[in-house]
């Protein structure tokens, strides 16, 4: 009788969890949405080394505090973030106000290390703390007719000096299709590096949609509304045809003023090399199915 093969390795021979679940591999796992799904893909091999807190908090686009990258850090400390609440309304069964305290106690805050790709062709890697937007929407009880979610930033010109000028239509508004909003990669972020959200990054709570350009990640949110129709979005209002509702990171569709094929990671210094921009910012396996059948180069789908 042929000798049957037996396993001579025990559980203790396996790589300890602390080693295989080390930070870099977790980062390559892209926040846990599909730890296995991306393994083996070339881009997943990239080590996602987060930017420093200094970098993340001193180079921001938050036009409510001015159009320069350094304005948010200079002026955002004027913003009062306590008390804070989010009004949830529209096509939901349980409309109402969520205070920040409710939010922080009710939802599981976890770390998500995501790439952040700005439409201006620079990028960062940010270790967010937050919870899935889907959790909040399910508590609110989204009704069947709701196909979109709209978001609104605080309007408080006395603390947000940029709002005193008509640079954009204030307050800043954003929106997602319901399937995008319910996607496990989409989070409401409440902190960075385990610290409460710095004001210049959108305190106390903001949206993070890692496969879209950074401007979709609306900051300092005060209102979330479930809707049947596609809501207006600030940048698409400001420059229709240049910025669209979807704003998916796409290296093949240029901004009129620059190519989106490459990007520069912030923090690389004066001789930082450009790197190729990845389709859906590297989250193609997780989200491409949301856009099946859509021509992502068509102006109406940018």
């Amino acid at each position: 009788m042929a000798r049957r093969w037996t396993n001579d390795l025990t559980r203790s021979d396996a790589t300890p969890r602390s080693v295989y679940m080390n930070r870099r591999q977790l980062m390559a796992g892209l926040g846990g949405a599909s730890l296995l799904g991306v393994a083996g893909r070339a881009h997943a091999q990239e080590e996602l080394e987060p930017n420093s807190l200094e970098e993340i908090t001193s180079y921001n686009n938050f036009y409510e505090f001015g159009t320069s990258k350094t304005d948010p850090k200079k002026y955002a400390d004027q913003l009062t973030t306590e008390p804070w609440s989010i009004e949830v309304d529209g096509l939901v069964d349980n409309p109402g106000r969520f205070s920040m305290e409710d939010i922080l106690s009710q939802f599981d805050i976890e770390e998500r290390i995501y790439r952040m790709r700005c439409v201006e062709a620079w990028s960062m890697v940010i270790p967010w703390n937050g919870f899935e937007l889907a959790d909040l929407l399910s508590v609110a009880g989204v009704q069947d007719e709701a196909k979109f979610v709209a978001f609104q930033t605080l309007m408080r010109p006395e603390e947000m000096p940029g709002q005193q000028y008509p640079i954009l239509e204030w307050p800043y508004v954003e929106g997602l299709r319901m399937d995008e909003a319910m996607h496990p990669l989409t989070i409401m972020a409440t902190g960075i590096y385990g610290e409460p959200m710095p004001n210049q990054n959108g305190a106390p709570i903001r949206l993070v949609v890692p496969w879209k350009y950074g401007f979709k990640g609306i900051k300092s949110i005060v209102r979330i509304t479930a809707l049947a129709e596609q809501p207006p979005t600030t940048w698409a209002l400001a420059a229709p045809g240049v910025y669209g509702f979807y704003a998916n990171v796409n290296p093949n569709v240029d901004h009129p003023n620059w190519s989106q094929a490459t990007e520069r990671r912030v923090g690389g210094g004066l001789f930082s090399k450009r790197r190729d921009t990845l389709m859906f910012n590297g989250y193609e396996d997780e989200v491409a199915s949301l856009y099946e059948g859509m021509d992502l180069t068509a102006t109406e789908n940018i």
């Binding site: 180079y59 620079w122 520069r264 912030v266 210094g269």
Partner: peptide
Amino acid sequence: AATGGMGVEPIN
């Protein structure tokens, strides 16, 4: 720019 005096994204 080379010594950090122009912020974290000195090229731009």
